[in-house]
């Protein structure tokens, strides 16, 4: 099949290119974080696209599930995962007992410390990352459900029972919200070890471990458990499971000590819980 010669770089095509680039740059400037004048337009167009998306999901979900079934799970892997989960659960329970013992000891010292129960809202994950550069999820609960920007999001653990921190709300629309995963680079949360040491866990990007800072406890070692510290102005309530320490390197001359942790949350969960606690201003 032969194709005719097409018009190449003409003044008109350069003018069109300049116009399109100018439009794109204008959109970028208008959509800079914190300004948001285009949010209503984006939300309206997103809502218009929703029926097409729902239809596509209905058609393609079985294909996706079939793919996962064919290539994602075999019997051996299932058995291995079950054993790992049991082991993790046992270790987690033991660490939890230690943490609670430490907590009781602390509480006996400070009588006015209270652990308040938080209301939560269950939401379904309607979309994962849509391209290679995105590290967010979309859930089907928004401002009409009491969701606010900055609220904490928790989900089930990848291994074992119980909940774990998944991330925080980064954008809110009327019927949906965007969740920024705790593995994203600019997400940082306060953590506490089972021995009571306090520090911060900062994301390093998708598929990479969290980096733990400000904990100088020299006995901190791989396998230690981390919970949210819930300190004043923290957007995360206390005692939510975050993950386990996977790597501790000693400080040598000129190089700081590095502590890494694996997030415990199942990043592929279908359902999440949003903690309806007023985020700090």
């Amino acid at each position: 099949m032969a194709y005719s010669r097409r018009p190449s770089r003409t003044p008109r095509s350069r003018f069109t290119l300049a116009l399109l680039l100018l439009t794109a740059v204008t959109l970028l400037v208008l959509d800079l974080p914190g300004t948001g004048p285009l949010d209503p337009v984006r939300n309206a167009l997103g809502a218009a696209f929703r029926p097409f998306r729902a239809a596509g999901n209905a058609v393609f979900e079985p294909i996706s599930n079939g793919w996962k079934g064919a290539f994602g799970y075999d019997d051996l892997r299932d058995e291995n995962e079950q054993l790992k989960a049991q082991l993790e659960e046992r270790k987690s329970e033991e660490a939890d007992v230690k943490r609670l013992q430490q907590k009781v000891a602390d509480l006996s010292k400070i009588n006015d410390v209270r652990v308040e129960q938080q209301k939560t809202r269950v939401a379904e994950v309607v979309s994962g990352p849509l391209n290679s550069f995105e590290q967010t999820l979309e859930i089907d609960a928004g401002s009409s459900d009491g969701i606010k920007k900055g609220m904490a999001v928790i989900t089930g653990r990848a291994r074992g029972k119980g909940g774990a921190v998944l991330g925080r709300i980064s954008e809110v629309r009327s019927g949906s919200s965007t969740v920024q995963l705790l593995t994203e680079v600019d997400v940082s949360i306060g953590v506490r070890t089972q021995k009571g040491d306090i520090g911060t866990a900062t994301g390093q990007g998708q598929g990479k471990p969290l980096v733990i800072e400000s904990i100088d406890e020299p006995t901190l070692s791989p396998g230690d458990y981390l919970w949210t510290s819930g300190l004043d102005r923290s957007r995360f309530p206390a005692d939510l499971y975050v993950g386990r320490v996977t790597k501790v390197t000693k400080a040598v001359e000129g190089v700081e000590r590095v502590v890494e942790a694996e997030p415990a949350a199942d990043l592929t969960s279908r359902y999440v819980r949003v903690v309806l606690r007023e985020p700090p201003k």
Binding site: L27, L28, D31, R42, L45, G46, R53, F133
Partner: peptide, 14 residues
Amino acid sequence: FDIVLSTPLGLSAL
């Protein structure tokens, strides 16, 4: 694509 992504509007367009 920008409309459904969480990245800034105009990035993919550019």
